[in-house]
Design a protein around this nucleic acid. Sequence first.
DNA 1: ACTACTCGGACAGATCCTGTCCGAGTCAAG
DNA 2: CTTGACTCGGACAGGATCTGTCCGAGTAGT
Lengths: 160, 160
Amino acid sequence: MSGGVEWALHCCVVLTAAESPVPAARLAELHDVSGSYLAKQLQSLSRAGLVRSVQGHSGGYALTRAPELITVLDVVEAVDGARPAFVCTEIRQRGPLATLPEACTTPCAISRAMTVADSAWRAALRAVTIADLARDVTADYGPDTFAGIRGWLAAPSGDD
Amino acid sequence: MSGGVEWALHCCVVLTAAESPVPAARLAELHDVSGSYLAKQLQSLSRAGLVRSVQGHSGGYALTRAPELITVLDVVEAVDGARPAFVCTEIRQRGPLATLPEACTTPCAISRAMTVADSAWRAALRAVTIADLARDVTADYGPDTFAGIRGWLAAPSGDD
DNA sequence: ACTACTCGGACAGATCCTGTCCGAGTCAAG
DNA sequence: CTTGACTCGGACAGGATCTGTCCGAGTAGT
């Protein structure tokens, strides 16, 4: 899995605390990661419709809907693509003992097993929302965590 | 996921039908894939202890244990590695609002969600064995399928 | 003892992920 | 209204991993 998924998820959780749009550079500073590369992940989120981008002065990124309506799977698929990890090459239709194409109406047994596992993985990620993550963060680090983030986002750059 | 996983799984199913060791080149011919590259996957299976390799004349690969005792997860981990897809970079400990290391006794919420999904994926793959796949193949293509494979494996090369 | 066949690990090429840059567009201020 | 500065968006290199190939070490049979 692409490492940018982690950045994108953290950004979504942080955006939960911000009312006004947050620039990519500021999110990068907060997480101490490459701003140029984080921009790419945010673009993916924008294309997927999870965040909206506001250009110009005092622009940035903001969530398009309530964090309860954004699942972790949404973010993962936006950044990493919705393609399943396993892709069947249909090698059963190749070689000297190839099965005829008309007999391949259903996916092969290996493909089916992989699809089941992939569905289980996606279901687990779909069951967790950004709001759930934010709640867990509050439970882990205290109720003032998001207040601190909100204050830092509002403060001018260079403050730490 | 590495594409060689599909080849390795097909090979394991085929090896179910063979009593004597099967050379990598013959497995490659049966599936119409690169023999040199398939050899690499079989080496991974050998290192993982799923198959044993017999060198010299009339050598090849054979399963080390009953197909009921080899899970799809075993093959996937042997070829692709047992490392989970998501690796937490601990970016919560970086940046101006970094959480102190002593407060990070448990994985962060994002990492936990990913671990749950990864466990579900692995559980689904662990629930399917090579014997299950072989049974499905028989159900899909008829009871004579493995007899045909066994005959082809025993026949001299160049026969199709 | 020889030969032929097998596996095993070392060696290039291709593809994707990571990281960076600059231009188009936009809002705020003067 | 003009200016300016700030923002996103897509196009451009570098690196790592996956894909594919090759030849040598070892072994069983002749």
